[in-house]
């Protein structure tokens, strides 16, 4: 078991290195720091001195991979690759355009993101499973058919519509909650309730349809027939036997998403003015703050890999075949 986990962790290392190289290539090789400087400073009134100054302030004035001028080990360490990419491994992200420490910013902004993402995730999961169970229980009836039709229709609506429509209806027309903003502590609840609700609704279509497929697949298996042959009521078969067995694919699928909750939701955070990591990322993209975007790309990838690891581990917990292999 432990050997298995260690093997998976070791397997994740080359992926992490690959991501690091990919972001390095994307941010420094495709376009030179000069291009970035010119874009940040604006096309007009750009002097070579201004570009040099911009690069020096951010440490982009060094060579990419190999510093000829430096001596000894500095030949490698005093390069963009070492200072910007290698340091990502130890979560040293450097500073943003406004000269704030990115790592610190991430630590502060993580909490509002989680305050929104965790309730949305849990409520969403519960609602999706309930809907899917309902459809599976009434399978091949008109209720099931119209449920699926409703799911497809809900999937076809843009996520932006749910946000804009919900914000208009609940906050502007009915004045139930503030339109946007955030406060820490318990006060956060009234700001978070609408984004959570909208998040749940916008995920309902695809989520419950997917879980319905899982349940129906499970219901075609032999043990279900045995349970029915024993004379168990259909509701007992569904809620006791099928649900428990279907939880295995559901939970292992869900585990992969949990670490990514830290990243927050890009769109709903920026619509509702919640100062989390999602809105941080959007602001950085719109302000073309390359350091922040690079940090967030790396953070997101690390969390994804953590999710993969957790998935592997959760498989070993629920499936003995993996544990003893």
């Amino acid at each position: 078991m432990l050997a298995y986990i260690i093997r998976r962790v070791l397997y994740a290392m080359p992926i992490l290195i690959g991501i690091n190289l990919l972001t390095f290539a994307l941010f420094f090789v495709v376009n030179t720091p000069d291009d970035m400087a010119r874009m940040q400073l604006g096309q007009k009134r750009v002097t070579p001195e201004a570009i040099q100054k911009w690069k020096a302030e951010r440490g982009y004035d060094k060579p990419l991979l190999w510093n000829e001028q430096a001596a000894g080990a500095d030949k490698i360490t005093r390069t963009i690759f070492f200072e910007k990419s290698i340091k990502l491994f130890v979560f040293d992200f450097g500073r943003a355009e406004d000269n704030r420490d990115i790592a610190n910013e991430i630590r502060v902004r993580m909490w509002p993101s989680l305050a929104l993402a965790i309730p949305a995730f849990l409520v969403g999961l519960a609602v999706n499973i309930t809907f899917a169970l309902g459809m599976a229980f009434f399978r091949a009836s008109y209720l099931d058919l119209w449920g699926v039709v409703l799911c497809v229709a809900m999937m076809s609506v843009s996520a932006l519509f749910y946000i804009i429509g919900g914000q208009y209806l609940v906050a502007k027309l009915w004045h139930l909650v503030p339109i946007s903003g955030y406060q820490s502590g318990l006060e956060a609840a009234k700001f978070v309730v609408l984004p959570v609700l909208i998040g749940v609704i916008s995920g309902l279509g695809s989520g419950s349809r997917w879980y319905r497929t899982l349940f129906l697949e499970e219901m075609g298996k032999d043990y279900v027939r045995t349970a029915r042959a024993k004379g168990l009521a259909e509701s007992v078969v569904l809620f006791r036997h099928v649900l428990q067995n279907a939880m295995i694919p559901i939970l292992t699928g869900v585990v992969a998403v949990i670490p990514l909750l830290f990243m927050g939701s890009l769109i709903s955070e920026s619509f509702f003015g919640i100062p989390g990591l999602g809105s941080y990322t959007i602001d950085a993209i719109q302000a073309q703050d390359f350091a922040v975007v690079r940090a967030m790309v790396y953070m997101g990838s690390v969390l994804y890999i953590v999710g993969l690891l957790l998935t592997d581990i959760s498989y070993t917990l629920v499936d003995p075949r993996v544990r003893f292999a």
């Binding site: 990919l22 970035m36 975007v293 994804y304």
Partner: peptide, 19 residues
């Protein structure tokens, strides 16, 4: 796959923009 899709797209589009 490990890199969150939106972020990778955002980073790439920013680079296209620079180009």
């Amino acid at each position: 796959n490990s890199i969150p899709g939106v972020l990778l797209i955002a980073a790439s589009v920013l680079m296209v923009q620079v180009f």
